[in-house]
Design a protein around this nucleic acid. Structure first.
Lengths: 150, 150
DNA sequence: CGTTCCATTTACGTCAACGTCAAAGACTCT
DNA sequence: AGAGTCTTTGACGTTGACGTAAATGGAACG
């Protein structure tokens, strides 16, 4: 029985690094952001992230982390990955057009907001209707039970 | 120029039928329920509908119409077609177990309701957050505009 | 040097509810 | 009999965001 405690192989080198590591491995990223490795590779392939390489291994920089934050935020709002890519791209291309970029982003956000509110309203209508149906079913059930075993 | 007015080919035979036609053609169904032919054929293939045949053509009975109504209602509530099929099947199998059937349906409806409410809550949170982000962006924009052209 | 354990690459699979052809009837009017 | 207009069947395509499996590679531990 070699060792009980799993050895943290890279614990020495990582402990020697500055408190907030410059780069993170794929696994560290996964834990930090609650995503799978597949997701990170997928995002790289879709040009949403650009991890550097140490040999063949990916190392995610602060930039990648900032981007991933934005990606996950965008997803919550219902933006597609393609939408998000275009936005991030825009900010990357020329770091001068701040105003134009922000106003473009704002416009897209407005669209999204409207869509989300529409969806919520539909959902609420459906919920209301379902509740009505259920009330009806409830009554039906009571009546049935009464007649089945009085 | 043969005729301007499009002739209703089946107008005679259909006019001869009782006021509320016993069966409907696929096209009539599509118009009545705002679905495509593909949808109706798909539902038949999935054993949600059972139109009879006149030669090769489908004729949808009152039963089909009742089922379709339920199918579309179920869809609004977020039930999958498979869920719906099972429910309809259940009611079909033995028209005796009314109480058991209704109570099963009620239970499923409760699940659905909970899911829908959860989804709505998530959506609402996202909406709130997006609005917050947008307010921030709004401020940013104002500040940028002020500094860009004062 | 061998074992272990990651990581990577590649590529096909998934899921739902249809959409979108294409080819071949089928019906009716003329 | 031809023309025009449905209808049907069959089968592959679509969409998004990954999941999953297989084969390969490399690094650290012992």
């Amino acid at each position: 029985m070699p060792n009980h405690k799993p050895i943290e192989r890279t614990s020495v080198s990582r402990a020697a690094m500055p408190p907030r590591a410059e780069v993170m491995t794929i696994r560290e990223m996964c834990e930090a952001f609650e995503v799978t490795p597949r997701t990170l590779r997928f995002y790289e392939q879709k040009e949403l992230l650009f991890p550097i390489r140490q040999g063949t291994r990916r190392l995610f920089t602060r930039r990648d982390r900032a981007r991933l934050k934005l990606i996950l935020r965008g997803k919550r709002f219902g933006f597609s990955l393609e939408d998000i890519r275009q936005l991030l791209d825009m900010y990357d291309r020329d770091p001068g057009q701040q105003e134009a970029q922000l106003s473009r982003t704002y416009a897209l956000a407005q669209e999204r907001l409207a869509a989300m509110e529409a969806q919520r309203d539909e959902l609420n209508e459906a919920i209301t209707d379902l509740k009505a149906q259920m009330a009806w079913g409830q009554d039906m059930l009571t009546a049935l039970r009464r007649s089945n075993r009085p």
